[in-house]
């Protein structure tokens, strides 16, 4: 199998290295010995059929689950971070931002407030944990103005500047998706993880999203990790594709290579004579328990 042949060859220079990641839920192996790397200034796509374990990888990477086996290495300028040992909020502070498959905005707060909440740590430091803010010192006011400027920058990018003061929950779906990306970018990450950002978008919105993601990669020079079902998005903008099926990596490479890989075609189109039933049974058991 090609998955076995894949080793951690991506080099030590990679921003994020996922090494031998295994995640078990009871008897269910949601992710099985997965290794890949995400490079700076590249969009790495993580694709696979429903239930392949893509979201689980994200949840583990951002600290919501702990891996059963394996580790995440984030190579920052001042040394590597081992994310599996860190709390979720510390992982975000280290520069890993994410969006959610089912959007998680602060729906009762305004669009601008969503973007300011993302700059919480920076502003807390500037306000000396609310003290300078209570006294309304100039240093805090300056920090807040800067935070608003950053928010305005991203609002201009996603075309929501004129609706910055309405509740995030009142935005149309497509705008909410983009706002969530903007919010993630406001923590000024080194790695942005997007869970199906194109889900539910129409063709025009989807094209806008492609442009936005390419912009983030090229102008902000960060790494993007993208889960996506929409193949037009994946094929058009990703630089590297990792294909998962039942938690296992079945293929990896450039979009063009992956598209031609028979293993991928089999996973997506299904194959009647496929004898590999055990993972399915295991999965059902896992869910039943």
């Amino acid at each position: 199998m090609s998955a076995d042949a894949t080793t951690v060859t991506a080099g030590d220079a990679a921003l994020l290295r996922v090494e031998h990641l295994t995640i078990r839920f009871g008897g269910l192996i949601a992710v099985d010995d997965l290794s890949f790397a995400a490079q700076d200034r590249e969009i790495t796509a993580l694709i696979g059929p429903n239930g392949a374990g893509k979201t689980t990888v994200f949840n583990c990477l951002t600290g919501f689950y702990k891996p059963s086996v394996g580790r995440f290495v984030l190579n920052l300028a001042d040394g590597p971070r081992y994310l599996e040992r860190m709390e979720g909020f510390d992982i975000a502070r280290a520069g890993v931002a994410r969006t959610f498959q089912n959007i998680r905005l602060f729906t009762g707060m305004s669009v601008l407030e969503n973007l300011l909440a993302a700059q919480h740590n920076k502003l807390m430091r500037a306000s000396f944990f609310a003290l300078a803010g209570l006294l309304n010192l100039r240093s805090y006011r300056r920090a807040e103005a800067e935070a608003v400027e950053l928010a305005r920058y991203w609002l201009d990018r996603i075309g929501l500047s004129d609706r910055a003061d309405i509740n995030a929950g009142n935005l149309p779906y497509g705008d909410q998706r983009r706002l969530e990306i903007a919010r993630a970018m406001c923590i000024e990450p080194v790695l942005l993880c997007l869970d199906e950002p194109a889900a539910g978008l129409n063709v025009r919105e989807s094209a806008e999203l492609n442009a936005l993601l390419a912009y983030i990669r090229d102008e902000h020079r960060i790494a993007l990790l993208l889960i996506e079902h929409d193949m037009s998005v994946v094929m058009e903008i990703s630089d590297h594709v990792v294909v998962l099926d039942y938690g296992k990596q079945i293929s990896a490479g450039s979009p063009a290579e992956v598209r031609k890989d028979p293993a991928v075609i089999r996973a997506y189109l299904g194959e009647e004579e496929d004898a590999e039933l055990p993972p399915i049974i295991e999965k059902d058991l896992g869910e039943g328990s």
Binding site: G88, A92, M109, A130
Partner: peptide, 29 residues
Amino acid sequence: LRLRKLPLGRAWEALREDEVACRSLGINP
């Protein structure tokens, strides 16, 4: 009223709205 306009107050409200999202933004719940 003052705290509500500060990052701390905003974090409180954000926590009320969605704790999971807060975690992913680096807010210590």
